[in-house]
Design a protein around this nucleic acid. Structure first.
Lengths: 134, 134
DNA sequence: TTAATAATGCAACTCAGTTGCATTTATATT
DNA sequence: AATATAAATGCAACTGAGTTGCATTATTAA
């Protein structure tokens, strides 16, 4: 849980500091849970441009600043931080009541067995259930 | 790996035996791997109606005859058989070269740790890598 | 200050999947 | 076998996430 500032993030990447990027990144850094495009648009003000927002999410993801989560709901969600799915120590929990997506890091080493001749590169796990708030 | 016939499947469900349903189910029962809507349409002949096909896939899924797989490619894939994701002994392997989706059952008991107060209901795992054919 | 480059805003598009509704078909009953 | 009824089909139009092309605008390095 290292505390990294917004400025440090921009310094490490070579992305331009635009108004939207600052707002978007703050939003994602402050958020406790993964955010959908719709949730982000809501928080940033509805006037944000759809393609600009998506392009910036893609750019942040590419830069390893955020990660995208496919929670099987049909819409992607985005969370601050880089995830190495190969290490298998990160999964996502989706509450079926409030639909909140939590990053779960408590899995020391999931051992996944694949058949002979298969080579694993990444493992993505979606856990569905009821969260502690519901 | 019990061998179940198409007729037995129809007898157990109370779905009408229509031409398309018979063709679709045979297709899924014969298929070695999970099939997308596009692949199914290809195999059934392009003249099949989109909504009819989707409705039947949904109906088969609802009846527990097939299962739908979200392999994070953006399109759902369908495979014969019921999957109890809660048992945690079934995952899906996606080959990043040929994009084939394999059902993987070799995981005796994936132990997933969730934080206190969280209740797990299902676990879905997508493994990405290279399959034995590639 | 200015030039170069990257980001933005807009509109139009793609593509998976869904919905409403009129028509047709499977099956149980006579 | 004829028929009634409920369900399945086919069609067209729609939805909603995400993308793309392009002209305009803003950031940053010189």
């Amino acid at each position: 849980m290292e505390q990294i500032s917004l400025d440090q993030v921009f310094q490490k990447s070579n992305m331009k500091r635009t108004k939207l990027r600052i707002a978007l990144l703050s939003c994602l850094m402050d958020a406790k849970h993964a955010q959908s495009y719709i949730a982000l648009r809501e928080r940033l003000g509805k006037e944000v441009d759809k393609s600009t927002l998506y392009r910036n999410l893609a750019a942040f993801e590419e830069a390893g600043i955020i990660h995208r989560i496919n929670d099987h709901s049909g819409v992607s969600k985005y969370a601050f931080g880089k995830v190495d799915h190969h290490e298998g120590n990160h999964a996502h929990f989706v509450c079926e009541q409030c639909e909140t997506v939590y990053c779960v890091t408590q899995n020391p080493n999931l051992e996944i067995n694949v058949p002979n001749g298969f080579k694993t590169k990444s493992v993505k796990t979606i856990i569905t259930g009821i969260c502690s708030d519901c």
